[in-house]
Design a protein around this nucleic acid. Structure first.
Lengths: 144, 144
DNA sequence: CGTAAATTTGCAACACTATTGCAAATAAAT
DNA sequence: ATTTATTTGCAATAGTGTTGCAAATTTACG
């Protein structure tokens, strides 16, 4: 189940080298990845456009989801929940560490509901918390 | 107080034509603006770099704040709260309308607190709700 | 008010990202 | 094994982010 090829087949996507390798990167990543992260980690030199299109395909198929940032650098992360095609329900919070700059999914932390002013109809919601993650906090303590 | 020039003086910024006009745009805008929005709305043709630097300056000075999006297009909006230099406390929710694509600040809707897993130290948090805003909802009903 | 000092602008320039078309290569279906 | 459908890589274009520097503008001050 945690196998690239199986995921691709289940999603009815052609199994290709680039898709397998990119998906594998997500499976071992402990956080979210940007497009350039992926390009750098791929040993085989895939074309930038291929990576771009592969990510779009994965988002469409609900394999990964996008995480907005303020630095014009969209991040992608595996969908932990089973996302149907085009329907993302990743209602979990994302955490961006200001020390190691790794963005982590917090699947156990659900985005809370908010009551909006009259007239606003909510459909999806995103929440990003910035701060210091456990690993970095521990390291800085250890250094003292 | 709602005057461009006064705001600039209060922030100890030089009063220049570009800053006044860009700030005026925000004062009349009902939602958040992207850099290209601003470039298009400026009658006087200011250089792209000037707009870029002006926005950075305003963010630094706490006049406007950034809103992250998933489409590589950071938005900027006026800080309703009094933001000190470099310290933003815009703990309000942003609403992105999927119909008119306008992002609105909801100053009365505070980003709720969430409890994070052990080790994570939160510093700031952002929340974006997508859906349909009151104006668009009303319009679509009126059309039926 | 006028001049010097500090800031800001516009231009040039470069890097990197986003996006599309198209022909060649590859995978899937038979 | 061969045909068909997909996917890839390349070329090319557009747009954004970013910096340095000289010219223009603003502010500070006598």
């Amino acid at each position: 189940m945690a196998d690239s090829k199986t995921i691709l087949k289940n999603t009815k996507l052609s199994v290709t080298a680039s898709r397998e390798q990119i998906l594998a990167l997500f499976l071992v990543a402990n956080g979210a990845l940007s497009q350039s992260d992926i390009e750098q980690k791929l040993e085989a030199g895939f074309d930038r456009v291929t990576v771009y299109r592969t990510l779009h395909t994965f988002v469409e198929k609900g394999i990964i989801h996008q995480i907005p940032t303020t630095d014009n650098n969209v991040l992608y992360a595996l969908c932990i929940d089973e996302c149907a095609d085009g329907h993302h329900h990743d209602d979990h919070v994302h955490f961006l560490c200001n020390t190691c700059h790794i963005t982590t999914c917090l699947p156990d932390v659900t985005v809370p509901k908010v009551s909006l002013p009259a007239g606003f109809k909510p459909q999806t919601k995103q929440m990003i918390v910035e701060g210091v993650c456990g690993k970095c906090e521990g390291l800085s303590v250890a250094c003292k």
